[in-house]
Design a protein around this nucleic acid. Structure first.
Lengths: 172, 172
DNA sequence: TGTGACATGTAATATGTTACATGATTGA
DNA sequence: TCAATCATGTAACATATTACATGTCACA
């Protein structure tokens, strides 16, 4: 939340939700029931300042990251190289592969075929997201989007290898 | 939980925790405060059956997945190709890259250097995890571990590309 | 006049985290 | 006998999800 508001200089809580929704990853949800309480916490913690934009809508509030908020954002960002952050990745497809032994051969075969197709679709979406950010000079969100493409490519290559190793029939 | 118990045929809740702890990913936490309440929910939902192993320890309980539990496990696993599951990946390092603009050039440079080093360490750990599973015939957990290696390799390659695009100095 | 996007918020419920508490068994 | 490991559990707290509720503004 701090990062998104900071990138836009100033914006509403609603705009933060829309920004998260734009992501090709389903990881970013931000329901109203989470974003408004979070906003309150950040504001009472002095990390965000908000001002009522009267005259517009029911009660439009324009948000801004405070100096202390920027400090907190930087501190959080700098935890990136920490072991727990670097190893904090999760791939729900890979998790399911761990339990493929519980499936019947026909289900397994279907799982592998359908998953490969979905991963290829997802790769296309991440590529489209990267393209949508323009071909200009390297920006921070472009390199982040590039990371999603690299990851999606690796997942497609991995799933092809999985099918090869387990056999097209799914390890029957 | 269903998957881990099923893989071991039968085990204790404590053994499930140890299994999750073994993972090279920090995503799998399973504190006592989450695993025992979860166990109760699964048991009252009829997905897991447990039997007291009297004579051993304070009150050792041996768990087993029921027929209905196996059905639920299969159903969950088969959601793998769903769009929301395939796109459910998250990489906390990539998330931070999105906000690199909030850092000062020197911090950014340090972030990129330290993160690359950490990603290389993590790659080594995933490779060790793969090797530890033996070189025998392809098994489901081996292909899952292979996926972690593919992903880690992609992240290292990506971070090298990021440093090249932003300049060794971090985009100053 | 109504629809869709903008915009904020609450309440019930579910769940996870942290810290604490208990106690048996095994081996040095 | 002491420490580590096995093993289970609770309580306070923080937080997310889902569903609902409200209201404005632009535009067709």
């Amino acid at each position: 939340m701090l990062g998104v508001v900071h990138r836009q200089q100033t914006c509403t809580a609603y705009a933060v939700r829309q920004e998260l929704r734009k992501s090709p990853s389903a990881h970013w949800s931000a329901s109203a029931g989470s974003i408004y309480p979070l906003l309150k916490r950040l504001e009472s913690g002095g990390l965000i300042r908000s001002e009522a934009d009267s005259g517009r809508g029911r009660g439009r509030r324009v948000l801004e990251v405070t100096a202390e908020g920027l400090r907190a954002l930087r501190e959080w960002t700098m935890t990136g190289p920490d072991e727990s952050v670097v190893s904090g990745v999760s791939d729900p497809v890979r998790t399911r592969c761990f339990f493929l032994g519980a499936l019947r051969p026909a289900e397994r075969s279907r799982f592998l075929r359908d998953t490969l197709a979905s991963l290829e679709d997802y790769l296309e979406r991440t590529r489209a997201d990267l393209s949508a950010r323009g071909a200009g000079p390297a920006s921070f969100d472009r390199v982040a989007a590039l990371g999603a493409v690299y990851e999606a490519e690796a997942r497609v290559a991995w799933m092809k290898e999985v099918r090869a190793q387990l056999g097209e029939d799914g390890g029957d």
